[in-house]
Design a protein around this nucleic acid. Sequence first.
DNA 1: TACTCGCACTAGAGCGCGCTAGTAGAGCGC
DNA 2: GCGCTCTACTAGCGCGCTCTAGTGCGAGTA
Lengths: 337, 337
Amino acid sequence: MADVADRAGVSRALVSIVFRNQPGASRETRERVLRVADEIGYRPDSAARLLARGRSRTLGVMFTVHQTFHTDLIEGIYPEAERLGYDVLLSAAAQGRSEEKAVEALLGHRCEALILLGPDAEPAYLDGLGQRAVTVSVSRRVPRARVDFVHSAEGKGVRQATDYLVELGHRRIVHIDGGAGPGSAERRRSYRAAMRRHGLEPEIRVIPGEHTEQSGIEAGRLLLAERDRGLPLPTAVLAGNDRCAMGVLMAMTRGGVEVPRDLSVVGFDDSHLSHLMPIGLTTVRQDAGLMAECAVRFAVERLENPELEPREAVLDPKLVVRGTSGPPPAGDGPSAR
Amino acid sequence: MADVADRAGVSRALVSIVFRNQPGASRETRERVLRVADEIGYRPDSAARLLARGRSRTLGVMFTVHQTFHTDLIEGIYPEAERLGYDVLLSAAAQGRSEEKAVEALLGHRCEALILLGPDAEPAYLDGLGQRAVTVSVSRRVPRARVDFVHSAEGKGVRQATDYLVELGHRRIVHIDGGAGPGSAERRRSYRAAMRRHGLEPEIRVIPGEHTEQSGIEAGRLLLAERDRGLPLPTAVLAGNDRCAMGVLMAMTRGGVEVPRDLSVVGFDDSHLSHLMPIGLTTVRQDAGLMAECAVRFAVERLENPELEPREAVLDPKLVVRGTSGPPPAGDGPSAR
DNA sequence: TACTCGCACTAGAGCGCGCTAGTAGAGCGC
DNA sequence: GCGCTCTACTAGCGCGCTCTAGTGCGAGTA
């Protein structure tokens, strides 16, 4: 920076003004400074800048690698953050890199706000974060913690999906849940409620799972093993999310079960993959772009107005019918209803 | 930091020593400092730290959101970087966020090295980066640029795949290429060479595409339209990568073509999704973990030994046969050979 | 002329650390 | 007693920037 100042024949302060696009420099000086900077390849140092101004204007985003829905969210976060004049720092949780580690990294870089995509950590820990920095949780409700919350009306989505299946004539509808995953509790609850409402209480069955393909595969294998012992297959599976649905699809197809002829499969998320499968996945769509936008806005608004209380945004999900669902096989059809 | 020092009754310098895990502090002091820090929630400021020590010890990773193979790579980058004592900063390119922008962000944060996953930018631009910072390109060869290069022997992989298909009896093997995508040129070349070697020169056909599902869908539709006009379908498709293969699979299945009975489909990458599809994808496996490790090592070694010249690592890919490939339909079989 | 005002610009402190050079004191041999 | 070394610790500068409080100057006003 000093080099630029010398070469342009001005003070460092002026260079700073130019680079911050602030008033207080003439048009020609501005151009001269920028030209010189370009010549010697100068670029302001974010670290020093951040240190000096005391504010980082940076949003830290924690996501889980391989969660395809998260990448959909990230894509939406960038433009909104840029629009509001904030920088974005990404930190991934992965096999061998815990969420805590990922968050520590963000905090170490002095992110002013944390946007956690489907965090899996203890509520107490998240509340601790919420006390120290503006924190937004996407998809995962954190009771009694000082964090904003952006999610879909999971219950509504599951209800729509269940109603749709029942209307097609399904009765043996199994739910593979997402274990302790974000949104799972509510999805589970709504499934049960919807089944009860349709007088299908005896058919209620929740297979414990999680939000991964592997989990779907295991649930599928379990069902196939039961079939081989003479038990009837369900006619429809409501998976915890799209990834899980893909796993079910794979296990079932391998096991000789044809979808949707023998079995309907419904996912949740509508991650960008679900309409790119050989036969599009019927799923409950969450609007990733809108969720991302909300999360960023919540974070920024609370940063710029500290007395604001954490808020909650509930977005309406929507059932998207594609190729993996249809009427139940004959014999399991409406007659049995 | 000053607070911690005061409360622990030591100097700031000592606190610094403790947090850097350096010799020069007694066991008890160390514990006391850490305890106090924990109490008041102190955490070293990366920005200040970076500024003070002049080195950031940070690797910047640019990736493309939605490229599933990139997330596989990221998962491998973190542990290796940590092992070598480096921090990792992620920056995503996406719809509306160009690679340049993503890279600028990394540079602004004073990353010492850039690891670019399948960069799509001009060689001249990349060379420019290479002059300014240690730069490693993964998957994309950048001729005459000062960057390290980590990739698979794409040619070998494609050759294996082609040989395998020909051995099964396929003759009409179409290649959907990856356009200007990383590795595409070599994959295309190898496909041509392999076909020629098998005396199938007249059957060579490259459909222009890119590394996305959409591109696979379009190529699939093109082939279906040809079929509807009475032209024969190919019996096998060699896709530019897994995502493209998925698109082909989807379009074909929708068009009533059964895989692998009527058509074999082979992908490239073996991203974590390919073995999670309903019928596992036959594909050419690139070892993401190893590639990530290599990339990090190249970057770090050149940082710590500046006179080192950029290097190239070529890893052996391996054909993985799963469910989407098989012998050609009768009538297109070995008899025609 | 004397003054105010606004614009273009500058001096210099300070952000939170790391690091170099140094000190204080304990332990040891002679 | 002296010098020596070793460990545990400290003082204070400087990293590259932002920001506050200025200075200098030409134009406009009384």
